[in-house]
Design a protein around this nucleic acid. Structure first.
Lengths: 264, 264
DNA sequence: ATGTCTTTGTGAACGCGTGCACAAAGATGG
DNA sequence: CCATCTTTGTGCACGCGTTCACAAAGACAT
């Protein structure tokens, strides 16, 4: 409560919808590009196109941050870059540790997108003693034993897990115990964390599976036959006695392309 | 999604909600683990816990697929594994090409999660002539010139883009022109694609930025003052125009979005 | 068979996010 | 100073997704 400022629109700080937060980095990227081209101002329509979203949505998103635009003109690029950066907390430097320096971990360490936006790789950690001391992306890999010390010394609050699935939870526990409160998880596992700790996961195989679903659907629509009818192939699969039969008959029908969805 | 008109007027193409589709891979993973432990059946409560979701949500998700459970008992693990696999289109083999074999591309090529679920890396493609022929993950890298031929010969419909941002759109266009209809994009760029083409993006830096936002919020609550307070520093200038100068100084270097891998 | 007990499947209410459409705000020109 | 034109900011309606709560369905014991 610094100034006696009348209550700022409650929309401030707390009220920003999660969906909006997720888009802010997108806007920031588009704005940065404009900034580099020395574009002074931009309209919601133009910026929305650059970010790949609807202009109304963009305006509403910005409205949660405040009234930073000028009617009849648009938004001041530099000003908006600063406001969004501040809102996202990118005006400060975030030390990050990457645990698990395999192919993915190394790729992340080399990823320019990190350093370019207020994130600094404070340390690379791996459980393999043979990796210790080995330089990756210009940084010497350290052994897991030093994990706690590293986090404390650097005041790290964000950790990236790029270990095999089997080690993820254990690493996660140690990170949290050491003080990390935000985790970006690349391991294909569900992490359990105490309240107050944020976890975001990036799952490569899941993304592909989702694409496969749509791909199959597209193929099914074209040919008039989809994968739905595959229930027949159950013969070879171990299925529950009664259930297999029941489901099969249930879905039998003209087989058309009656999806596995049954309206009541 | 990504960009362009991914707006699906919901042709009621399929009754399965997008949110449900996104969770199916999660259930599948948990079920596979149970299957390996030879667990015969599982209740919605147990499975939900393993997948990290609410049990009611899980039951509703499954209800879109059909009635595959047995009241009083639960779900037959093997049967459900098959049903979900089929629904996701994983009972068939999907040839995939990875374009851009830098650190990230190599990591993806080595990622076991792909091959283990019906995805087969048909080819690795890179624009650097020096990479051609070089084996990565046991597969010889091929030059971009052969992209179209590779896609046709292998009947590839899913492409993964791991190139620098600058090359992404161009690669995307070529992939689409050659017949690819689903794209997984790792480049920090908004891709524009024609209708009928699905694009999913994985943006490492965006995920970190979202974490930073929450981290800042947490820090702000603790100290009783936080990021919002930072606004005070600028409180003197309510008008955008003057703001530009101040904001510009804090942004050092043009950096922009440096791609994950390889040079342009 | 019948009753009890477990777990599913789902109707209904609720909340969030999206997109439309328009009034208000400010720039611009006469 | 007034008229006109551009673009923001937002009230509102709609649809999707989540969650609750419970009846129905089946297993199991007696």
């Amino acid at each position: 409560m610094a100034t006696g400022r009348t209550h700022r629109p409650a929309t401030r700080s707390r009220g920003i919808p999660e969906a909006t937060v997720a888009r802010l980095p997108l806007y920031l990227r588009a704005l940065t590009a404009l900034s580099e081209r020395s574009v002074p101002t931009v309209s919601s329509e133009e910026l929305a196109a650059a970010a790949g979203v609807n202009s109304a949505k963009l305006r509403k998103d910005f409205s949660y941050l405040g009234s930073y635009g000028t009617r009849g003109v648009g938004y001041d690029v530099e000003y908006l870059v600063y406001q969004i950066s501040r809102e996202l907390g990118l005006t400060q430097d975030w030390p990050v540790v990457i645990v698990g320096i395999g192919n993915l971990g190394a790729a992340l360490a080399n990823y320019g997108g990190f350093a370019s936006r207020g994130f600094r790789v404070a340390a690379l950690i791996d459980a393999d003693p043979a990796m210790a001391g080995k330089p990756v992306a210009g940084i010497a890999v350290q052994h897991t034993d030093e994990l706690e010390q590293i986090i404390q010394d650097n005041g790290v609050s964000i950790g990236v897990i790029a270990t095999p699935a089997g080690a993820a939870q254990q690493v996660c526990d140690r990170l949290v115990a050491a003080g990390v409160t935000s985790i970006l998880n690349f391991a294909p596992t569900v992490l359990t964390v105490p309240d107050g700790v944020d976890v975001r996961k990036v799952d490569l195989s899941i993304e592909l599976q989702i694409l496969a679903f749509h791909e199959q659907r597209k193929a099914g629509e074209e040919t008039g036959q989809g994968g739905s009818e595959a229930a027949e192939g159950l013969e070879g699969t171990p299925a529950p006695p009664a259930r297999a039969a029941a489901a099969a008959t249930d879905r039998k029908g003209p087989d058309g392309d009656v999806p596995a969805v049954m309206p009541a």
